[in-house]
Amino acid sequence: MSQIHITTTINGDETEYLCEADETLLDVLRDHLDMTGSKEGCGTGDCGACSVVVDGRLVCSCLMLAAEAEGRAIETIEGMGQGDQLHPLQQKFLEHAALQCGICTPGILVAAKNLLERNPNPSEEEVRYWLAGNLCRCTGYDKIIRAVMDTAADMRGAA
């Protein structure tokens, strides 16, 4: 089977890769591009551990074919901070101890960032339901929700 040549933008950098027609974006990120921050929790779009943003839209990268990324702008956990500078959400997750095993954390951060870009002043209920697509088995979610609310308040204050 001939491979497909894709040119896309990942975290602001123009990126080219070759992929099989049946490879998912998650496969390519993890296996070809060594960007292992996105995780495979279920492979069926039910857990959110592989969350990335494509042209501003939150998607499960396990449900998107790598070939569909042509000409798109993709954001992953690897691009969330600026060099050593953490994104405010990342900083708040540290302060609130909003993680345990950490494997759902990248997906949750990507989803939360996308929420705050759409809605800088979400209610707690909006946060809870926005993150309902991201499973966490360790924390019980409380600290995650508090960290997101706290970040939103801070970012509004700074803006």
Binding site: M35, T36, G37, S38, T76, I77, E78, M80, G81, L86, Q90, F93, L94, E95, A97, L99, Q100, G102, T105, P106, L109
Partner: peptide
């Protein structure tokens, strides 16, 4: 914080 927290939030763990 968890000893790996900084790596967890950046996807580097």
């Amino acid at each position: 914080a968890h000893d790996s927290a900084a790596k967890h939030v950046t996807g580097r763990a």
